[in-house]
Design a protein around this nucleic acid. Structure first.
Lengths: 338, 338
DNA sequence: CTGAAAGCGCTTACAG
DNA sequence: CTGAAAGCGCTTACAG
């Protein structure tokens, strides 16, 4: 009833090479330089090759107290935005020779704490929480796992923030400079700070321009095309129809495109549309979407790299704020006065 | 220079509860029923709670020879098709209380063998290879990791196949029954069997219908919108323009839509388009795409569940073939004779 | 009903 | 230049 697979151990290698087990360890750890003769080293390497030996990860972790593994927590992999984050994270982890544990929280905060607690005990050395709100210090009970938080508020962990305020303002100023005044807002009904910021920026941009639209011009919906269609139809059916609409996420823009088509509104001539995200969706839509481009893949890479650096050097990374690009494509144009 | 985090151990719990370390283990493993008194059990649980103790994963893995973790290997997470696979896999793993290690091979076969070798040594108990060709037995050197392969050929591992042949034939028959004869094929330039099958099915469907088109009607391209546009333009510029086109992947259909629009061809009136995949892309496109729908999320779930069952019962899952749906949407219509 | 002990496979300080 | 030994934290057969 022991291990079903019969992996070779360093002991097997030692026997085959005719040396002690500690010598095997030394050689394979590269700490043999002026301690083990070249011939013996070669014998050890040869035996290692013959047996296909690899050090047992759990044993090494137990001994070293480090797993060389980290966990990435995301709210929703099916969103292409987060899939790109994952790609960047995976690349960074592999490059530094760390294993990457994947957890999709599916926006469930309860999972989160359990998962962190469980994994922190010997499975991983640290966590990246990307778009996932970290638990309170107190709920972590004493021990402090290494955590890097991206795009979520936290007073206790190092933070990589995304300049959603700046991006949204730039998008709004673009629309304003094209002459638009009735600019609607299609937001995400989520309490997450990242979405609230976009809403605030929208208000601020209108205020700065001295524009006062009623609440009818602002709707929020689930992150889902069908719900976006419902809300978009309400907005576009307003008596004083908006001439432009800012979507807090590119998936919502899809709903807007569909409703516009359905209502016979041409984008961008009758309606300018701006999105937020930086996913493939912006390229798939026709005309291609003017959007706030968040470098999600680089952010995934950066977050993992920071975490690993923190793990290796033991110095906490400093918080930073990452800027976003605003990219003008075919979905926005000058207001045509009628 | 020991462990930086000070996780409590079962020894700490034992001391606090005033019992031996083995008693703590017994209680927490649920094997204490008629071995430890109820009072002692409660004391142990209380101490566990107070300290926030969790068994150390690496220690347990070392002792038990099982990591309660599996690895999922995918060729490309950024493809929404595989993102859905990942969601299904993640759910299955979490439900069974397994950790999920994520590896994006990015279609690099060299990574593959290294990664499997490394992870098999104590990091994970098994692998799901989804759309990734498994290494040869010989290259695994002696030891046999538990592997479930999805949608890739393998003579030695249990297989979950996808009925790409059936799906493609159904799509082709749909087009044929709508009266189309000049049906072009936009394929993926990859040597993967999953794509070759689609090409074969295309040929077979034409043969069965007694149609003989020249090689000009068949192009392959990279999995990328820009290259798809180039090839789509060549196809749609043919003197006898095809009236329908089968795309071996939904991303390629995006390129076809763009070129069609550019050339003033209306979908589906001037050109019927069929895709393959079952991703969000089919819904984003306008008109929505008629497509071969592969249940990627369920397949991810199924693959992980099979693997875990195999791990727990030690009986190898039997290979199976999963059928796909064909879904008719707005991108195909009856051939308009001109 | 409870505890002492072995051992999973590794790394590393220590002895020779 | 090489080996014997301790110990990471756990589970489980064994002794009492």
């Amino acid at each position: 009833m022991k291990r079903s697979k019969n992996l070779p151990t360093s002991n097997d290698v030692a026997k085959l090479a005719g040396v002690s087990q500690s010598t095997v360890s030394l050689v394979l750890a590269g700490k043999a330089e002026r301690r083990v003769s070249a011939e013996v080293q070669e014998k050890v390497r040869e035996a290692t090759r013959v047996l296909g030996y690899r050090p047992h990860a759990a044993a090494r972790t137990l001994r070293l107290g480090r797993a060389k593994a980290i966990a990435l927590l995301l709210p929703d992999v099916v969103n292409p935005y987060f899939a790109a984050v994952l790609r960047g994270a995976d690349r960074a982890a592999r490059q530094q020779d760390y294993a990457l544990l994947f957890v999709d929280t599916e926006n469930d905060q309860n999972w989160l704490e359990m998962v962190i607690g469980t994994l922190a005990a010997g499975s991983v050395d640290g966590f990246v929480l990307f778009g996932v709100e970290p638990p309170e210090q107190s709920e972590l009970g004493g021990f402090e796992p290494r955590i890097v938080v991206v795009d979520a508020p936290s007073s206790i962990f190092p933070l990589i923030a995304i300049d959603g305020m700046g991006g949204t303002l730039e998008a709004m100023n673009h629309l304003l400079s094209l002459g638009h005044r009735r600019i609607a807002y299609l937001g995400v009904s989520s309490s997450k700070e990242t979405f609230r910021v976009r809403t605030r920026a929208y208000h601020q941009a209108l205020n700065n321009a001295g524009i006062n639209l009623g609440p009818d011009y602002e709707k929020s919906c689930l992150m889902d095309i069908d719900d976006a269609k419902v809300k978009a139809r309400e907005i576009l059916s307003l008596p004083d129809r908006p001439t432009a609409i800012f979507c807090a996420d590119e998936r919502l823009a899809v709903g807007v495109y569909k409703v516009a088509k359905d209502m016979g509104l041409r984008i961008p001539i009758d309606l300018s549309v701006v999105g937020f995200g930086g996913t493939q969706i912006a390229h798939i839509l026709e005309p291609e979407l003017t959007t706030v481009n968040v470098p999600s893949e680089s952010l995934g890479n950066l977050a993992v790299s920071s975490l690993i650096e923190c793990l290796e050097t033991n110095v906490e990374p400093k918080s930073r704020i990452e800027s976003v690009d605003f990219i003008i494509r075919g979905s926005t144009t000058t207001l045509i006065q009628d």
